[in-house]
Simulated assay, not measured.
Amino acid sequence: MNTHDAARTAHIDVASLRELMTVASPPPRLIDVRTPGEFEAVHIPGSRNVPLDLLRKHRDELRGHLGAGAMLVCRTGARARQAEQALAAAGLANLRVLDGGIVAWQAAQAPVRAGRPRWALERQVRLIAGSVVLASVLVGMAVPPVTWLAAVIGAGLTIAALTDTCLMGMLLARLPYNRGPRADLESVLAALAGDRA
């Protein structure tokens, strides 16, 4: 993310969002861009799940259903910033990102809806990356060229940090474990339209 993008992204902290949710009429539109599995595990009451991969692919169709001024939520804020950039490129303005995401929301002991516990996508990435690096180093003791696999994973994690994107995370998001009942465009649009009725 470049400096211009960082300056453009508007943020809101947990306390301000909670206050806005109680005084604004209608309340702010909360869009959670985590995977359906993460959303199913825990989310802010009243929020709608629009997974980041679906949002990127269908941002033009979603633009009219989200509206300007939507509040974007993810686990820590990184995916919500990516969603804000995608929606801004599609013409939506005045979007805000919840600082610290659902992690900050829970730390403030704000209300949540909890479902079946699941590992967050970032934790899954750490498990897979760490396991591949460990296995490649151990196997590399007997077969030295295998150690290069650890270098490839390290390079991928470095690129992920520099670009604020993660190919491994995007691939893991497509696994059935991370999919939930509302991961298709039609269901998401129906839920968003139902909010406006």
Rank of each mutant, 00 (worst) to 15 (best):
134 L>G: 10
149 L>Q: 06
88 A>R: 12
96 R>K: 13
71 M>I: 15
121 L>Y: 05
122 E>M: 06
123 R>A: 10
53 D>K: 00
138 L>Y: 03
81 R>S: 11
130 G>P: 05
37 G>L: 01
106 Q>C: 11
129 A>G: 07
130 G>L: 04
45 P>R: 07
42 V>L: 15
93 A>E: 13
110 A>R: 11
67 G>Y: 11
142 A>N: 10
44 I>N: 15
33 V>I: 12
79 R>G: 05
34 R>G: 04
99 D>K: 09
138 L>F: 03
36 P>G: 13
84 E>R: 07
59 R>V: 06
105 W>D: 13
136 S>K: 00
143 V>K: 05
149 L>I: 15
144 P>K: 07
127 L>A: 12
69 G>E: 01
131 S>G: 07
103 V>I: 12
68 A>I: 05
46 G>C: 14
60 D>H: 11
55 L>Y: 08
97 V>T: 13
39 F>R: 09
33 V>N: 06
100 G>K: 08
89 A>R: 08
68 A>Y: 02
123 R>S: 04
102 I>M: 11
67 G>P: 09
101 G>N: 06
120 A>Y: 02
110 A>F: 01
56 R>L: 04
80 A>R: 09
135 A>R: 02
112 V>D: 15
106 Q>P: 03
79 R>F: 01
69 G>P: 12
122 E>I: 01
112 V>L: 06
41 A>N: 05
72 L>H: 07
136 S>P: 14
86 A>N: 08
137 V>M: 11
90 A>K: 03
110 A>H: 12
128 I>K: 01
107 A>Y: 00
116 R>T: 07
139 V>C: 13
108 A>H: 13
76 T>S: 11
111 P>K: 06
70 A>T: 09
133 V>D: 01
60 D>V: 15
97 V>L: 15
53 D>I: 05
81 R>Y: 14
42 V>A: 11
112 V>Q: 09
71 M>V: 15
94 N>D: 15
49 N>K: 08
62 L>W: 06
33 V>S: 07
124 Q>A: 08
59 R>H: 06
46 G>P: 15
51 P>F: 00
87 L>E: 12
89 A>F: 04
102 I>K: 00
65 H>Q: 10
116 R>E: 09
46 G>Y: 12
131 S>L: 14
86 A>T: 14
78 A>E: 08
83 A>E: 05
119 W>C: 08
40 E>C: 00
125 V>G: 09
83 A>Y: 00
105 W>C: 14
141 M>E: 01
114 A>V: 09
62 L>V: 06
130 G>S: 02
41 A>S: 15
53 D>G: 02
140 G>W: 05
46 G>S: 13
103 V>N: 14
84 E>I: 00
108 A>Y: 07
130 G>K: 07
145 P>L: 00
109 Q>D: 14
87 L>M: 13
121 L>Q: 08
